Simulated assay, not measured.
Amino acid sequence: MHEPAPFERRGPSRRPAVTSGRPSAPARELTGETEYDRYCERQRRHHPLAPVPTRREYETRRTRHRETHPQSRCC
């Protein structure tokens, strides 16, 4: 009898799910990950000669700006 390979599965789903390792677009929107992507696009469009900061630099600047410019929030 044929011995199934270790990755083969019996039942309705025989192939393992293939994922890119990256969250889906709605999940990225909810977590705020797309903010950096939009920032980079805008930087490149409006300031093509300026270097684009790394994600870490962006997060540091963003946090510093939020701490120095607090906004009142309802919640």
Rank of each mutant, 00 (worst) to 15 (best):
M1I: 02
H2K: 09
H2N: 06
E3N: 09
P4D: 03
P4T: 02
P4K: 04
F7N: 13
E8Q: 10
E8I: 04
R10V: 07
G11Y: 07
G11K: 10
G11T: 08
G11N: 07
G11V: 08
S13W: 02
P16R: 13
P16F: 08
A17F: 05
A17Q: 06
V18F: 03
V18A: 13
T19S: 12
G21T: 01
R22T: 05
P23Y: 05
S24W: 01
A25D: 02
A27G: 03
A27M: 09
R28I: 01
R28W: 01
E29H: 04
E29C: 08
E29V: 08
G32A: 03
T34P: 00
E35F: 00
E35K: 02
D37I: 06
D37P: 00
D37G: 04
D37V: 09
R38P: 00
Y39M: 09
Y39K: 05
C40S: 08
C40T: 12
E41T: 11
E41I: 08
R42E: 05
Q43T: 10
Q43E: 12
R44D: 01
R45M: 06
H46Q: 13
P48T: 05
P48E: 07
L49V: 03
P51C: 05
P51L: 04
V52N: 01
V52L: 07
V52S: 04
V52Y: 00
P53L: 06
R56I: 11
R56D: 14
E57C: 09
Y58R: 07
E59P: 00
E59V: 12
R61Y: 12
R62W: 11
R62N: 09
R64G: 05
R64W: 03
H65S: 15
R66M: 10
P70C: 11
Q71Y: 14
S72I: 15
S72T: 15
S72R: 15
R73C: 14
R73M: 14
C74Q: 14
C74Y: 15
C75W: 14
